Every structure is written in C-alpha cells, then in structure tokens.
Computed example of a mutant assay.
Amino acid sequence: MVTEKMIGGLPLAFFEIDRQAVILKIKGVGEIKQRLASIGIAENEEIIIVAKNAQSCIVKVKESKVALDFKMTNKIIVKEKTEWTN
C-alpha cells in the first residue's frame, strides 16, 4: 500500500471529505497551472474537499467553492494539514 508519507503527498482525489490539506504541487503544463491559479488553487494554499461523487468533487479554497472533475483532482498533489504544516 502506498501512503502519503512514502511519496510526500497524494492526489487530492484520494482525500476524504472535510479533510484539510495543503497543495504541494500541481502536475501539468503552464496553462493548467494558470487556470487553477486564477481560481485560487496554487501551491502552498489550503484546500478542503466539501463534497464528492463518482465524477467530481467540490473543494473550498480560501473563501470560494469550486467544482473539479477527478481528472483535475488527480493533478493536484496535497498533504494533510496538521498543526505542524506551515
């Protein structure tokens, strides 16, 4: 079993609802990163999954809620936010 600790992060798609995370990396080319950054999704930002279904999930970043498909959530690498996370 591959764990978050072994690889330094997991795709956001694997996180559970209401679990706070910090974005470590966004996989993809500049256009994808720019589009996500324009809606507040960028490295070192906090993110929370607020709802999920078979095709997509709704995330909260800053004070906004955004719907993302699972293809996109697999490109967002996160780690669980703890009291030790900067």
Rank of each mutant, 00 (worst) to 15 (best):
E4T: 11
K5H: 08
I7S: 08
I7T: 00
I7L: 10
G9S: 01
P11L: 05
L12I: 09
A13T: 05
F14Y: 13
F14R: 02
E16F: 10
I17L: 15
D18I: 15
R19A: 11
A21C: 15
A21V: 14
V22K: 04
L24K: 11
L24W: 01
K25I: 10
I26L: 02
I26D: 00
K27Q: 15
V29C: 01
V29D: 13
V29W: 07
E31R: 08
E31V: 12
E31M: 07
K33T: 02
Q34Y: 15
R35F: 05
L36A: 06
L36W: 07
L36C: 09
L36E: 06
I39E: 10
A42T: 02
E43S: 08
N44I: 04
N44Q: 08
N44T: 06
E45C: 02
E46S: 14
E46G: 13
E46V: 05
I47A: 02
I48Y: 03
A51M: 04
A51R: 14
N53E: 08
N53P: 08
Q55T: 00
S56T: 07
C57E: 08
I58A: 05
K60S: 05
V61T: 12
V61C: 09
K62M: 13
S64Y: 12
S64G: 09
S64I: 10
K65T: 15
A67P: 04
A67M: 11
D69F: 15
F70V: 00
K71Q: 15
K71W: 13
K71I: 13
M72D: 07
T73I: 10
T73N: 05
T73C: 07
N74P: 06
I77K: 07
V78T: 15
K79R: 09
E80C: 02
E83G: 13
T85I: 12
